[in-house]
């Protein structure tokens, strides 16, 4: 199993290296600059907003659940609850909703207005592929930035969850950390990374597609923005439900159906 993982990792790194060595648009400095700028705008500039939402969600989750768990003597279950609520579900979902509100709207309206101003036509006429220069870098950067923001969301939520749990129920730090870490499986982390990265991918795909789909009239800019937001909400919710359902079905299969019935 370990040997297989090393081989798979090596094959992946080699294919990335080969793609990089070839005349890939991602090697182009201007394309890289678009990626850095998009990560800065979507990721770095949203850190404080994400921290605020993570704090609110962390406090609400713990305050609503910890007191109830203590009444029934189940304060040990705070770890699995936080993992299930924040790492698997709320972290990716809330992050992607904030990203949609901040960045998907910006990307869709930017591309639609570029289309309206004839910038995309002029790039095409000069031999620059808008797909390589405008679309692909934004999707890559958006996916990476969403992943970074979701990680930021999770650690702040867990930290705030611990602090607020001290105010509501008296759980020692060591017990809290043990409860959280023992509940966190590799599968949880895998689901978190896959879900967050692909949610970012899907919403930025919707944003760029919607922005590029306009025919050039200025009245289409708000239409493209609204369409991108609606597509992002619907696709991200559908993807979230699909992954969660698949995960719980997998868990049922692993633990045996009888434990759930």
């Amino acid at each position: 199993m370990g040997g297989f993982s090393v081989k798979a990792l090596w094959a992946f790194m080699r294919s990335v290296y080969v793609a990089w060595r070839l005349d890939s648009p991602l090697r182009h400095k201007d394309v890289q600059m678009v990626i850095y700028r998009q990560i800065y705008f979507t990721g770095a500039q949203a850190l404080r907003l994400i921290a605020l939402f993570a704090t609110i969600i962390g406090v609400l989750t713990v305050s609503q659940s910890a007191s109830q768990l203590q009444r029934f003597g189940g304060s040990d279950a705070i770890g699995p609850l936080l993992i299930a609520a924040i790492v698997r579900e709320l972290g990716p979902l809330v992050t992607v909703l904030i990203v949609t509100a901040r960045s998907v709207t910006a990307v869709a309206s930017e591309l639609a207005s570029m289309n309206s101003n004839g910038e995309i036509d002029s790039l095409r006429a000069c031999g620059v592929s808008p797909l390589s220069y405008l679309v692909v870098p934004r999707i890559i950067a958006g996916s990476v930035a969403t992943l970074i923001l979701a990680m930021h969301f999770v650690w702040i939520s867990l930290l705030v969850g611990f602090v607020s749990s001290q105010l509501i129920v008296d759980i020692p730090l060591a017990k809290f950390i043990l409860s959280v870490t023992s509940s966190l499986t590799m599968m949880d982390l895998f689901i978190f990374f896959i879900k967050t990265f692909f949610l970012g991918f899907v919403v930025f795909l919707a944003a760029t597609f919607s922005g590029m789909r306009t025919t050039g009239a200025s009245y289409e800019i708000p239409v493209a923005t609204t369409r991108a937001v609606m597509w992002s909400f619907m696709t991200s919710l559908a993807f979230q439900i699909f992954i969660s359902a698949a995960y719980y079905l997998y868990q049922m299969q692993m633990r045996g159906w009888s434990n759930f019935l």
């Binding site: 207005s113 004839g118 036509d121 002029s122 790039l123 006429a125």
Partner: peptide
């Protein structure tokens, strides 16, 4: 050089 200048904004 088209009618709409299309200069990168």
């Amino acid at each position: 050089a088209l009618e709409v200048d299309g200069l990168l904004s």
